[in-house]
Design a protein around this nucleic acid. Structure first.
Lengths: 343, 343
DNA sequence: ATGAAAGCGCTAACAG
DNA sequence: CTGTTAGCGCTTTCAT
C-alpha cells in the first residue's frame, strides 16, 4: 500500500508531527532532525496524500478554466497562457469545454462539472446574466471575454468596441468604403454585439453606410461558418470592398470562398480578422488581425481568482487587457478600382 | 460554512449513514425515507465534499491528459475527444501540456504536475524508454502517439508507417517522382522516425530515390518550422515535385513559402500533410492529409486507463486506431511537366 | 432498513 | 524544538 506520514514517523522514530513539519518546510526543525526524517522519507518513497491535505485545509490547489472550444486556436493559446500563469503560483488548471452552449455554461458556473476546485475562470458565450445571478456556488468566479454582465464578478477582456473600431478605421484608411461584418450570431442574444457596435460606430462616424445588408450572421465561429456567410453575401449581389470578421477562422473561411469565386484579396476585397491566431500568418494571403494580449489575459485571470481565495473580497473589477492591430497582406494597399482614372 | 452530511442528518432527524445511503443511491432505503432525506438535502443545498470522498475511497474521479501543446489543433481536437469520452464514465479530465520537453514529460509521468489523479494519458515527444522504466508511480499510464516504447504500458496510435506509405503511394500514383520529407526533428532521437521509414519504404519499393537530400529536419512542428525547411530545400537547388510533411502545420508553412517563390501547388509541387486539421480544409489550396480517427483514439485511451483502475492489470497492449487519407486540392492532378510531350 | 462508531491521511492547536 | 490530540467529511463494517 501507499506509505503515510505515520509509516515515515515510525521508520524515523519520531512523531507524525515532526515528519509533517519537515514535509511542509516548517521553520523550527533542527537541521539534524530534518536530515534524519528526510532520509526516512526517501527510503520509504513517501508522497503526501493530497486528498487528505485538501480535506484538512479546504483548498485543492486547482482552478478550473472553462472555454467554449479547445479546437479554436485562440482558446488553445489562451489555455496555455492560463496554465503557465497558474503554475507560477503552484496551481493546477483543470480545463473544460462548454461548446459555447448555455446549459453547459450553467453547469460549469454551478460547479457541476469540475467540482474539486478553489476557483473558476469561465469564458461564456450564451450564458445570461440571470443564470449567474442565482449562482449557489461559493468558489470565486472570474469571467473572460466580450460579453458584458452587470454582476459582482471580475471580468477580463480587451475593449472590444475600441478594437473593432481600430480594425474598421484601418480599413477606411486603406481606402475601403463598403465594409461588411461577418459573424453576428444568428438567432441568439448577441455575443458579438460589441464588435458589431464598434464596426457601426466607426463607419458611421466616417460618414459611411453600416446598413444591415452588410452584416452577415453565422451559426458558429468556425471556418465553415465564415465561408457560408461570405457566400451568402456574394449571392445577394452585394460587393463590399472589405470584410471585418468576428474572428480569424471566420475570416479565413471567407477568404477561401473569395478565392473560389476568383475575387482577389486584398485587391478586390480586404479582410480583417480577430484574435491573431498562428494560422493567419501562413496562408497564401496573410491575415490582418486584432491581436489581444493573451499572456496578459491569462495572468490577470489567475491573479484575479487567487486574490479572492483567502476569503478576501476585493471590489469586483472590469479589467481591460491590451490589444494591437497587426497589419498583413489581406489589407495591403488600396482597392483595385481606386485608381485616379476611376474618380 | 458548507453544509455536511451531519447537518442534513440533523435536519432530517436521521443518522448520517441514512443520508449517505440516499446520496449514493444505495439500494435498501425506504421510499418514504428517501423522500424525506432528499427534501432536507434540497432545503440545505447540500453538496458532497469530494475531497472527503476521495480520501475515503482512494479514487478521485479524475484522469490527467498530458499533451505536447494545446496550440496545435490536432492535440486540441484530440483533447476534446478525450474529455468527452471521459465524461461518459463520469470522469473529469485534467489537461496539461509538456511543450514536448523531456523534463516536463518526466515530471508528468512521475505525477509531479497533476497529482490527484486516478490515471494518466501521456503523449510523449522526447521521453525515453529509460525515463519510464524507473517510474515510481502507481497510477495507470497509457501512452499515445507514434513513439515506440518497449514497456508494459498500453500504447495507442495509428500505424504510422502504413499511414506514411499510404500518403507517399498516393503521391506516386499521381505521377510524382521526387518526394521530399519535411519534419524530421533536428538533433534529437527521432520521434518522426516511423513516418520517415514509411516514406522511405514506399519510395524504395517503387524504385524511386529516397536519399538524405530529400529529408529536411526542423526544430519543431509548427508553421514556421515547415516554412523554414521548405526554404532550405529550395535553396539547395533541389526541385522535388512533391512534399510529404510531418503534419499539417508544417505542410501549410511549406505551402506558404512555395507560394512566395511563385511555385504552384499542386502543379509544380504536390503537398501532403498529416492529422487532417480543420485549417487544411480552408486554405487557398486545400490540403491532402492523413486523417487519424481522433474520436477512437480518445475513446480507447479513456477505456484503457479506466480498465486498469480496479487493481486489475490486463496484459499491456499496442492498440492501432484507424486512419484514412483525405485527398484534396494540394495533390490533385498530374505534375505540370508530366505531359505527353515531355516523355 | 437504519444507526453507531471507526478511520482514510493530514494539519493545527496546544502542551511539554 | 517536538509530541499528543482532535477533527476535516465521508464511507464502511458491524450491530440492531
Amino acid at each position: 500500500m501507499r506509505v503515510s506520514l505515520k509509516d515515515v514517523a515510525a521508520h524515523a522514530g519520531v512523531s507524525i508531527k515532526t515528519v509533517s513539519n519537515v514535509v511542509n518546510n516548517y521553520q523550527h526543525v533542527a537541521p539534524a532532525m530534518r536530515e534524519r526524517v528526510q532520509r526516512s522519507i526517501d527510503a520509504l518513497g513517501y508522497r503526501p496524500n493530497l486528498a487528505a491535505r485538501h480535506l484538512r485545509k479546504g483548498r485543492t490547489g486547482m482552478i478550473a478554466l472553462a472555454l467554449p472550444e479547445l479546437g479554436n486556436p485562440y482558446f488553445a493559446e489562451l489555455a496555455a497562457a492560463v496554465i503557465d500563469a497558474a503554475a507560477e503560483h503552484d496551481y493546477i488548471v483543470l480545463l473544460d469545454h462548454t461548446g459555447g452552449r448555455r446549459e453547459q455554461e450553467i453547469l460549469v458556473s454551478q460547479g457541476f462539472r469540475a467540482r474539486v476546485i478553489d476557483g473558476l475562470v469561465l469564458s461564456p458565450i450564451e450564458l445570461e446574466t440571470d443564470d449567474l445571478r442565482d449562482r449557489a456556488e461559493n468558489v470565486p468566479l472570474v469571467l473572460l471575454g466580450e460579453r458584458e454582465y452587470d454582476l459582482p464578478y471580475d471580468h477580463i477582456a480587451i475593449d472590444n468596441v475600441a478594437a473593432a473600431r481600430a480594425a474598421v478605421r484601418h480599413l477606411i484608411r486603406m481606402g475601403r468604403r463598403e465594409v461588411a461584418f461577418i459573424g453576428d450570431r444568428r438567432g441568439r442574444s448577441e455575443p458579438a454585439q460589441l464588435r458589431v457596435r464598434g464596426w457601426r460606430e466607426e463607419l458611421t462616424s466616417a460618414g459611411l453606410s453600416a446598413d444591415d445588408g452588410l452584416v452577415a450572421a453565422t451559426d458558429g465561429w468556425g471556418h465553415a461558418d465564415g465561408a457560408a456567410a461570405m457566400a451568402r453575401i456574394l449571392e445577394t449581389g452585394r460587393r463590399p470592398d472589405a470584410v471585418f470578421a468576428y474572428n480569424d477562422p471566420v475570416a479565413i473561411g471567407a477568404m477561401r470562398v473569395l478565392h473560389e469565386r476568383g475575387l482577389r484579396v486584398p485587391e478586390d476585397i480586404a479582410v480583417v480578422g480577430f484574435d491573431d491566431v498562428v494560422e493567419g500568418r501562413f496562408g497564401a494571403v496573410t491575415l490582418t488581425s486584432v491581436s489581444p494580449d493573451k499572456g496578459a489575459i491569462g495572468r490577470l485571470a489567475v491573479q484575479s481568482v487567487l486574490a479572492r481565495l483567502g476569503g478576501e473580497a476585493p471590489e469586483p473589477r472590469r479589467i481591460r487587457a491590451d490589444f494591437r492591430l497587426i497589419e498583413r497582406e489581406s489589407t495591403l494597399g488600396r482597392p483595385a478600382g481606386d485608381g485616379p482614372g476611376d474618380a
